[in-house]
Design a protein around this nucleic acid. Structure first.
Length: 423
DNA sequence: TCTGGGGTCCTAGGACCC
DNA sequence: TCTGGGGTCCTAGGACCC
């Protein structure tokens, strides 16, 4: 019997998180915007039905927002991350292996059972997660990851909202695949869909039956794997272990345009500090740091972007060393007279911090002191909130900082913000 | 006026080496 | 006049995902 893979996907996840703590928002139009309240990054079904696409800029929909009373939120990733942890902790006991794929979805290996039984099992998972966390999920079940994704796509087409589908329970699967646009397939993006269209392939069914040699030529091995998976041959394994990360990125758009080197360097220092913090949390050290800046690509006639990578004299995850290198890299790409809208810091060539060793001219003592200092810094910021203790280079006012005026409280992670029950 | 952020993997092409 | 072949490493860019 082939393996059973379930894809558990949280419905409209960020919106669902907000609704957990404001139940009256159920069945009303709700959306979550990106930082600076720029774009739609999550939409309730009601907002989707109004025709607001994913990633749409909010300012273009002002009239619609007002007309339908769409309730907007600034993003609250602290809340979403915590609820995500709870959802997957609830899911885990139902599975024989779990791959947490993103903040709102996970692949799970299910015990062997028939499609009928697996749907019953899926509904039990759904009920349990809903009861434990308040988050509604959908479950797609199949013999490969790609087909489990297809099951979810087919689920969305069906009017009856059971929320669970085992693809092998469908008597008319081939007909359903012929009705599914190829762009809906996991692994087929904008560019691949265009190339497939030129081959006369526009549906999932056609892709499944496509000539594999031709696919390999046009979409390379990545596309070939997708075709094999559609045919029930697993090519993508369940990645149960959390792979150590290969890179750490911190980038932000500014709330306004930034002109001076002083302000830009504050921002880059702050992003570096944040990236270093993430690095330490993952117990990694970086060998290379890359800094990039960008003007507003929607407005500037002469759009400017540039980046500079710099090797670190020794691998580290200490904020002061990283800031020093980042700022000297920034100096090389900063051009006066530009209006910068975005900047970022990328840490690369990461390694496990256990392999850290002092460089030829540094002392082990010094290194130890730095590690201790970072531990204290992280402990303070964990306890009292991010940025409580920071480096002067990051600035004090930080007036360029992104804005989140409509953010909900950190209901589940800050003692001062937990909901209060009133009788 | 106002357009997100964080990742991974793969390929192509150039530099360089023997 | 005649000017190889194979390998690795690096980087940039493309493609995908949520």
């Amino acid at each position: 019997m082939p393996q059973r893979i379930a894809l558990v996907d949280c419905n409209n996840f960020y919106v669902s998180c907000e609704r957990v703590f404001e139940p009256k928002l159920k069945d009303t139009p709700v959306a979550v915007l990106s930082n600076n309240d720029g774009c739609f990054i999550a939409r309730s079904n009601e907002v989707k039905a109004l025709g607001v696409p994913m990633g749409a800029p909010a300012f273009q929909y002002k009239a619609l927002i007002r007309k339908h009373g769409i309730r907007l939120f600034s993003p609250n990733f602290e809340l979403y991350g915590d609820l995500s942890d709870r959802v997957f902790a609830t899911l885990r006991p139902f599975t024989e292996g779990l791959e947490i794929y993103s903040i709102d979805e996970a692949f799970a290996r299910l015990p062997q059972m028939s499609p009928e039984d697996s749907e019953i099992y899926g509904r039990e998972i759904r009920q349990t997660i809903l009861k434990a966390t308040g988050i509604p999920v959908s479950v797609g079940i199949a013999s490969t990851k790609t087909l489990a994704k297809v099951a979810l796509a087919l689920l969305k087409q069906t009017p009856e909202k059971t929320g669970v589908l085992d693809i092998d329970s469908l008597p008319d699967l081939d007909a359903r695949l012929d009705g599914l646009p190829v762009r809906e397939i996991w692994g087929v993006g904008h560019a691949f869909a265009g190339r497939l269209d030129r081959l006369g392939i526009s549906t999932a069914g056609e892709l499944k039956r496509a000539d594999q040699g031709q696919i390999r030529k046009v979409l390379h091995v990545v596309g070939l794997r997708t075709v094999l998976e559609l045919n029930g041959y697993p090519c993508l394994t369940l990645e149960e272990a959390h792979d150590p990360c290969q890179s750490v990125l911190c980038s932000r758009s500014f709330s306004r345009e930034v002109k001076t080197f002083a302000e830009l360097s504050e921002a880059v220092a702050a992003f570096t500090a944040r990236a270093a913090e993430k690095l330490r949390k993952e117990c990694r050290v970086a060998g290379v740091i890359r800094v990039f800046v960008e003007t507003n690509r929607f407005r500037e006639k002469e759009w400017y972007e540039n980046m500079k990578s710099a090797a670190l004299p020794r691998e580290t995850n200490g904020t002061p060393d990283l800031i020093a290198i980042a700022l000297s890299a920034l100096k090389q790409i900063y051009r006066p007279g530009r209006n910068y809208k975005r900047a970022g810091v990328l840490l690369l060539e990461l390694r496990d911090e256990r392999f850290l060793q002092p460089d030829l001219f540094g002392s082990a003592e010094e290194m130890k002191r730095e590690v201790e200092l970072m531990k204290v810094l992280d402990a303070i910021n964990n306890r009292f909130g991010r940025g409580t203790a920071r480096f002067l280079a990051e600035g004090i006012q930080q007036s360029w900082k992104m804005k989140r005026p409509m953010k909900s409280p950190a209901y589940t992670t800050r003692i001062s913000e937990i909901p209060v029950a009133k009788c």
